[in-house]
Design a protein around this nucleic acid. Structure first.
Length: 381
RNA sequence: GUGGGAUUAGCUCAGUUGGUUAGAGUGCCAGAUUGUGGCUCUGGAAGUCGUGGGUUCAAUUCCCAUAUCCCACCCCA
């Protein structure tokens, strides 16, 4: 997926009344005077790719995943960056709640594997365009008499986007809307059946969740199921992962009517959460073996390193003509697992000691039997 | 777009009521009988004190502007 796309893709896909499109896009003109935008999220680009590559005729459901950077033009703060990373999954073609549950359980499984606790799942349904239209009228009726109790921004929201008022953090607005009717109670039959189906799926496997009727998505394309995984460690934005269904998006983008659902996981927020819970990720394996040169054997050592690398070993050697002691320090400080010291004798006899730096144990190996050395080194991994 | 804080060595930070060569910890480099790491000790290198102006005999310190980062609002991953 390209890092930037034509601006129109996002304004159409994400919705040009959303904050993301109205004020959070990095938009610029290219040399052909076309308006381009650094992607603020992944779904719109995936849908474009889905259509351009004819995936609508692949066997359903089509599942796609991506690991991308994304950009939003806004002031940064804890847990929110201008450039950030998302791991996302999208699934096209399945309209029932079973796949909603599968995506959610995929995430739950992932968090479990990482050892994350206290990451809570919240779900909601924001209905389809039909029941949302009906609900807007009901909500406006309720809010009409309370307009004077709302903050100024919410008064503006009243006409354009009354749903958002329920998500306002102003104390006065929260009080005024405390017992407002919620969309969840006014779903059409189809949406209600879908939501019940999702809850049943989650109940069947005893995955804990809470229904939060106030979850509102900031992107216009969502329909029916929306969900979030929430944490308390990522600043005022608690959402580590947000997702939902977007049954109308593919058609909006010029494709056949195709249901879709996906989520985006905020990588930085996930890392923050892991740190807050003191969870250590396994370190990326550095090199397997350090070849230390003693005396004037540098050239021979580098040749041996070349042979070992061709055999698939990750090998480091001294490149600054440093003393043996300095080389050992280097290996120790960088936590390299194995070291071999190669002086004149070792090179001549093609035999050396290989030492595990952690245990201090040594054993003798032949330098021309690289496979044996590889076996020793990999045994410990 | 709005508000608050920060910016001094690679990193984390002291400091200067304006006054000679700006410090610490850590990291880095080297050495402690010349071929063996982690601990300890000794020594060394390293800073346009964010940038640009102004005040002053003198500015890292005071004033103004600006940039970047951090935190919060809005909203989102």
């Amino acid at each position: 997926m390209p890092t930037f796309e034509q601006t129109e893709l996002f304004s159409r896909g994400v919705g040009d009344t959303t904050d993301v499109v109205q004020k959070e896009m990095y938009t610029f003109l290219d040399k052909g005077e076309r308006s381009m935008t650094l992607r603020p999220e992944g779904t719109a680009g995936v849908v474009r790719s889905f259509l351009e590559n004819g995936m609508a005729s692949w066997p359903s459901p089509v599942r796609l995943s991506y690991n991308i950077n994304a950009f939003r033009y806004e002031n940064v703060q804890k847990g929110r960056y201008r450039e950030f990373h998302q791991f996302g999954v999208e699934a096209f073609g399945a309209k029932g709640p079973e796949i909603d549950a599968e995506l959610i359980t995929l995430l739950a499984l992932y968090f479990n594997k990482l050892g994350l606790q206290e990451t809570k799942l919240q779900i909601n349904s924001i209905g389809c365009p039909a029941c949302r239209e009906l609900y807007h009228q009901i909500l406006k009726q309720y809010l009409g008499s309370k307009l004077k109790d709302l903050c100024t921004t919410c008064r503006q929201r009243y006409d354009k986007n009354p749903l958002r008022i329920l998500d306002c953090k102003e104390e006065r607005c929260r009080q005024a809307t405390a017992d407002a009717p919620v969309l969840l109670d006014h779903l059409c039959d189809g949406c209600q059946v879908h939501f019940n189906g999702l809850k049943r799926e989650l109940d069947d496997i005893e995955l804990p969740y809470t229904v939060n009727p106030r979850i509102v998505r900031g992107l216009d394309y969502y329909t029916r199921t929306v969900f979030e995984f929430i944490s308390e460690h990522v600043g005022t934005q608690g959402t580590i992962c947000g997702g939902g269904r977007y049954d109308g998006l593919v058609k909006t983008m010029g494709g056949p009517e195709t249901p879709g659902i996906g989520f985006a996981l905020g990588v930085e927020r996930l890392l923050m959460e892991l740190r807050a819970q003191a969870i250590q990720l396994p370190e990326a394996p550095g090199c397997d073996l350090y070849l230390a040169a003693a005396g004037q054997t540098g050239a021979a050592v580098r040749k041996l390193a070349w042979q070992m690398r061709q055999a698939g070993l990750a090998v480091e050697t001294d490149l600054m003509n440093r003393s043996l002691k300095a080389q050992m320090k280097y290996a120790g400080k960088n936590k390299l697992p194995y070291v071999m010291v190669l002086g004149e004798d070792e090179i001549r006899q093609q035999t050396a000691m290989i030492r595990c730096l952690e245990t201090g144990q040594e054993q003798s190996v032949r330098l021309d039997r690289i496979e044996e050395i590889a076996a020793i080194v990999r045994d410990q991994k």
